[in-house]
Nucleic acid binder design. Structure first.
Lengths: 220, 220
DNA sequence: AAAAATCCTTGATCTAAGTCAAACGGCCAC
DNA sequence: GTGGCCGTTTGACTTAGATCAAGGATTTTT
C-alpha cells in the first residue's frame, strides 16, 4: 500500500476495501461481458486472466498473485473484456471503482498510485509483446520463470523454489506456445541442469543460465 | 475531448495543453530512459512506439495517430521505457502530467477520461497478445489493416483507401513477422483481389474477405 | 479402492514462417 | 540527370515449433 498517509487517511482508505470476496479454485472472479464495477486486490491466491475468441482460441494475458490488482480492463467500456479465473482458492478485496475515483481526487498519493498500477500493466504488456513477437521458445520460458520467481521472492518466498499454480497448457497459452513445446522445454532445461522439476514443483539450480538464455548480452 | 464541460472549465483545460511541440519525420518525441514529465496528445502526424533489447531486437508496440495519447509508459517509473518516433512530420500537445493529475482531481469527467485512456491501452495490448500468441500471418495482417482503416475512418478518412505511414519492416515488427512474410501477404491478398496495393497506397476491395480471414466465425 | 478424467511427456512427422539470396524500383542527394 | 540507397518483392531452401499419436502419471470422482 502507498506510503504517506496519516491514521485518519487510513480510515478512509479502509472504507474502499471494506468488502471481501472468496473465489474457489477454478471459479470466476469476473468474466467477459460482466458489467464493470470494481477493481480487485488479491489478498490470497493466484489468478489467470484470459481472453477468448469465438473460434475457441484462448490467450492467457497474465498471471496475478497476492498484492496485484485485476479488473483494469473493464474501465474503458464499463464491461469486462477478459475472464479472471482463480487457479487456487483465493480471497480478494473488492474496491468499487467509484470509491477509488472519489478517494483519488481527495488523496493525490492514492491517485498517483492508481496511475502507476495502470502504467505498470501497460509496460508489462509491452514486454510480453517483445516475448511473443521476437523471442524463441526457450527465451520466453526463461523469461517466464525468472519473472515468476522474482515476484514470489518479493513476497517473501524462495528465490530458487516455486510451485506452479498453472498447468503447462496455461503457461503455453501465455507464452504463445503449445503444451508439447512447454513440456519439451521443461525437459530440456532439466537435462541441462538448469532446473529441477517434479510436476508443479520447480527448483532453479542455475539462475545465471536462465538469465543468459533470456538475455545473453548482459554477460559478456 | 470529453464532454460535460462549461466554458470556464474549458479555460482551465486549455492550460494543460498550452504548449505544443513539433517533431520531424524520423524524429524522437521521447526515448527509452528519458525522464517522464508529460503525456502527449497527437494533433497531426503519425507515430510508432517501440522497445528494443540490448541484442538489437526491436518490437513495435503500437502505431498512433491524431487524437491518440502517448507517453503512458513513463508513469510507473518516472522514466520512459519505449521510444516514440514520428513516421511523418507531426505536432503534439504537451500535457505535463502534474497538471493532468491536478485537474483530474478537480474534474471527475477528466479523471474518468484519463482512466479510460489507460484502460483502453491495456485492452488494446490484450488484443495484440492474442494476435501474436494465437493467430497466423494472414489473420494478423487482416486484423492490422482492418484496425488501421477503422481508426482512419473514425477520423473522417476513407473506409477503403489508406496510405501507410510505416514500412513493411515496421508492420512486421508490430505483427511479429519478418519483412518477407509481410510482403508475401500483401502480394497474396492482392492476387486474391482483396486489396489493391501500390507502394504505401492500399485500397481495400473486399472488406468482408478481410473480416472473414480475421474472424470466420462471425460469418456462418 | 476403483474408475474417470486430466495433465504431462516423448517420439515421429509436417508446415508456416524464417532465412538466404538476388534483383527491382523509387527517391533523394549531388 | 544519374548514381546510390533504401525499401520491397520473389524464389529456393531451412527450421523451430506445431501437429499427430500414444502412453504414463496424478488427481478427482464415484
Amino acid at each position: 500500500m502507498p506510503v504517506g498517509f496519516n491514521p485518519d487517511d487510513m480510515q478512509k482508505l479502509d472504507e474502499v476495501v471494506a468488502t471481501r470476496r472468496r473465489v474457489k479454485r477454478g471459479g470466476l472472479l469476473f468474466s467477459n461481458g460482466d458489467p464493470f464495477t470494481s477493481l480487485y486486490a488479491i489478498r490470497t491466491g493466484f489468478f489467470k486472466t484470459c481472453i477468448s475468441r469465438e473460434d475457441g482460441r484462448e490467450q492467457v494475458t497474465g498471471f496475478q498473485m497476492a498484492g496485484e490488482i485485476i479488473g483494469l480492463d473493464g474501465i474503458v467500456s464499463d464491461y469486462h473484456s477478459c475472464n479472471a479465473v482463480a487457479l487456487e482458492d483465493a480471497e480478494v478485496c473488492v474496491m468499487p471503482f467509484a470509491n477509488v475515483e472519489e478517494l483519488s481526487r481527495e488523496f493525490p498519493v492514492l491517485q498517483r498510485h492508481v496511475h502507476k498500477i495502470m502504467s505498470r500493466e501497460i509496460v508489462r504488456e509491452n514486454g510480453v509483446m517483445m516475448l511473443l513477437g521476437n523471442m524463441r521458445a526457450e527465451e520466453r520460458f526463461a523469461a517466464f520463470l525468472l519473472n515468476l520467481v522474482q515476484r514470489l521472492h518479493a513476497r517473501g518466498f524462495s528465490q530458487s523454489e516455486l510451485v506452479l499454480r498453472m498447468t503447462r497448457e496455461e503457461i503455453g497459452s501465455y507464452l504463445g506456445l503449445k503444451v508439447e513445446t512447454v513440456s519439451r522445454t521443461f525437459s530440456k532445461f532439466s537435462e541441462d541442469g538448469i532446473i529441477e522439476v517434479k510436476q508443479r514443483y520447480v527448483r532453479i539450480l542455475d539462475p545465471d543460465a536462465l538469465k543468459k538464455i533470456f538475455n545473453p548480452q548482459t554477460f559478456y
